[in-house]
Amino acid sequence: MPSKLLLTGATGFIGGTVLHQLLNTSDPGIKSLSITAVVRKPADADRLAKEGLQTVLVNGLDDDEALEQAASKHDIVVNVATGFHATSTKSLIRGLGKRREQTGKDVYYLHLSGTTCVSVPATRESPFELRAFSDRDEDIYEYELLREAYEPYAQRTAEVAAIETGELCQVKTYIVMPPTVYGRGTGFFRTQSHQIPTLIRNALKTGYAEHVETGVARLGHVHVEDLARLYALLVSKVVEGASIVSGRHGYYFADTGYHLWSEVTSEIGKVGHELGVLKSPMPRAISLEDAAHKFADGDVKYAEACFASNSHTRTEKAYDLGWRPVNTESDFVNSIRITVEDVLKEQEQNA
């Protein structure tokens, strides 16, 4: 039975919320685990120590040796720092492989990815048509290999690396693929997500909510606490020794609803105008190149994936395991007002 879990991303939005879920669960299997968090700063380690948590310090995600060594002392790794870093992914899995060699017992790796890995551009031609994926489909891995051969994408590159390194090191891998993650996080550090707060900060800077071209790009969404519940469920199943699908078929989608970015920016515009911080309630269109500059530090590929692509993924295996998200579509819409207010408070505090 696994007894030691290593978690990356404890200071982040998703990772902090996953950690909170693991620490506050009533699940006896999870409560039996010894949990260690990977952090970069001594001050963060001190903060987590006050919560009774063990930590290990590394010099960032490129600290391959430290990550591999840390993972080699654990039975489960929950990597929710980022899904865009292939080398740290490999290091963590190699470490788990060493643990398996030492103990002779199964080891497990849970990886944060995203549905943009299977999305298609909304503003340009692509040889790949929009496909409705179920996480029960058996060819997702092969599809991603085709996509990678045509046009590498860092999140997908890391995901493929997780599966292939897991096979090489005999580590059971589980790929969690959320869409847009929204809501207020429950971690000890960062409590805001990326996509919607980015649009809000840009709106406050320019005076207008802005979306890419027509704004008809369609992505899914999931509340961060519901996503954290899925991670906790997978950890629980692993600890109890349940037979759950891993490796090339170990994909777990996490969609609970869908939105158009024009709908999101319309709500941002409405709320911002009501609060007197935007010039108009009406959103306006900008080019993908402008969006890359404003939303993604000039990275066109990343801006396209996050704000100008379409995906259609059906969550089925998570529900089969017993996942029960509690947030509704009205919660998604209401979260936009809450997030606008949170960003305004953040800016006031930093002024």
Rank of each mutant, 00 (worst) to 15 (best):
346 E>G: 01
127 P>I: 08
294 K>R: 12
62 D>R: 02
271 V>K: 01
334 N>W: 11
323 W>C: 03
134 S>L: 03
129 E>N: 15
156 R>W: 00
281 P>C: 05
160 V>I: 15
4 K>Y: 03
148 E>C: 08
208 Y>I: 02
120 V>K: 07
213 E>R: 12
102 Q>C: 02
73 K>E: 12
268 I>R: 01
275 L>F: 09
320 D>Q: 05
348 E>P: 05
137 D>C: 01
336 I>W: 11
134 S>P: 02
162 A>Q: 03
212 V>D: 01
21 Q>C: 13
15 G>L: 14
138 E>G: 10
12 G>K: 01
134 S>R: 10
166 G>M: 06
204 L>D: 05
118 V>G: 09
279 K>L: 14
94 R>W: 14
319 Y>F: 11
282 M>C: 14
309 S>P: 10
108 Y>K: 04
224 V>A: 05
64 D>S: 11
65 E>I: 00
214 T>N: 14
286 I>N: 00
297 D>L: 05
201 R>G: 02
346 E>N: 09
172 K>D: 04
25 T>D: 12
215 G>R: 03
249 H>V: 04
123 T>E: 02
77 V>M: 05
194 H>G: 02
7 L>Q: 12
244 I>V: 07
277 V>H: 15
46 D>S: 15
66 A>M: 05
14 I>A: 04
75 D>A: 00
81 A>V: 07
276 G>C: 10
114 G>M: 03
